[in-house]
Amino acid sequence: MREQRRRREGNRWWHRFRRGRGPRGEVTPDLDDPGLTVVAESFAVGEADSAALARASAWSPGRPAVLRHHLLLPADRVPEATALLAPDGWDVREAGREGDRIRVHALRADRLDALLCARERARMAGLAQRLGGDALGWDALQPPG
Rank of each mutant, 00 (worst) to 15 (best):
H69G: 04
A106K: 08
G126S: 13
A56W: 04
V78S: 09
L107I: 00
R63P: 01
Q142H: 00
L131W: 00
R12S: 09
T37D: 05
P143N: 09
H15E: 15
L67P: 05
G99L: 00
A140N: 02
R12E: 14
D32Y: 02
E26W: 12
G20H: 03
L36N: 02
V66N: 04
V45H: 15
R101E: 12
G46N: 00
R19M: 10
I102S: 07
R55F: 00
R68S: 11
L84G: 13
A81T: 00
Q129F: 15
D134H: 13
E9C: 12
V78M: 09
P79S: 14
E26Q: 15
R24Q: 14
L136Q: 07
R108F: 06
A44H: 04
R101F: 08
G22K: 03
L73R: 05
R16C: 06
P29Q: 01
T28N: 03
V45F: 14
V104T: 05
R111A: 08
P61Q: 03
L73D: 02
R97Y: 07
G99E: 04
W13N: 09
W138T: 00
A65I: 02
R111P: 06
H105E: 13
R55P: 00
R6F: 14
P23D: 13
E9N: 09
L116Q: 09
P144D: 06
G89Y: 09
R55V: 12
L141C: 03
R111Y: 13
Q4I: 15
M124C: 01
